[in-house]
Amino acid sequence: MNKAALDKLQEWSEKGHRSVQADTLLMLAAEHPEVVALSADLTPTARLVEFKETYPDRFFDVGIAEQNLIDFSAGLALEGLRPFAVGLAAMVPMRPAEQMRAAVGYMKANVTVIGIEAGVRFGPLGNTHYAMDDIAVVRAIPNFTVIAPSDPLSTHKALYACIEHEGPVYIRLTGGPGYPVMYPEDFDFQIGKAIDYRPGSDIAFVSSGSLLADAVGAADILEGKGISTRVVDMHTVKPLDTEMLDKVFAENRLVVTVEEHSPFGGLGGAVAEYKAGFADAPKQIIASLGDKFQKLGDHKFLMKENGLTAPDLAALAETNL
């Protein structure tokens, strides 16, 4: 574990995921000469200016060309480099989906695609800048791993896990400035291994991304009412940790999946697909952004609009128990 990361937690929490990924890429590049970073005219937005200046020969801006961002990364990866391609989650998995399938997934290229500002974090910029479908796009591509970390340290550790991982990864990042610290100390992060964040026997919130904090908030409210509530950090959406889900199905009476994504093809869809194989699994509610384009508004407004705040989640769960 990189001690520098623990020292940065407060700063990362204040600045949000863009800084976490940019600082972590710098740390990775210092330790691994095969690490290169790429962006498509997004260098300042992705906070990669320092990377570009520190490693000018290992940073590539391909211009406003997301398809080439992915194909060029694949070519680098096939020759043994470890490219991290950073783009807006609203643009990157959808625009070059075909490149992610043909050049990355199909050839098992070791490319990590980082989608920043996933979900509806871009609030006032409107729906073209919302990523409500990125998990669905990437989950359908064989060989891709999909990770949605919940906090600064898990984001940092997820990126470190990618360098040890063989195969393509998509990391979607949600937590903006005020990124809640859910893991203040070092912890064991493994791709595909969910974290039983807190125990509980009635309801289980199974969450991905930075909404973990809201799921925990909802659990606090429910516990106050005497409803025992478990929270699972399902940071890896693909492959799902089915052992953890087996435990949840056996031990809890209601499953509420929580994500800043469409109800289709994301964590909720993935859990429902797995649950379809069980005759006696508990009921599942999918808390999500819904099947709609959103109203214009800031993130807080949109979370309220979509019932994704802690009180909303608690009420939804209680009603369905």
Binding site: G75, L78, E79, L81, Q99, A102, A103, M107
Partner: peptide, 25 residues
């Protein structure tokens, strides 16, 4: 067979990445 292809244009863009990798290395 170095590269999967069939969806046109991608092989060329991947080849560009491979050429850049040779330069880096």
């Amino acid at each position: 067979i170095e590269v999967s292809s069939g969806t046109l244009g991608n092989g060329f863009a991947v080849a560009c990445g491979m050429a850049k990798a040779a330069k880096i290395k």
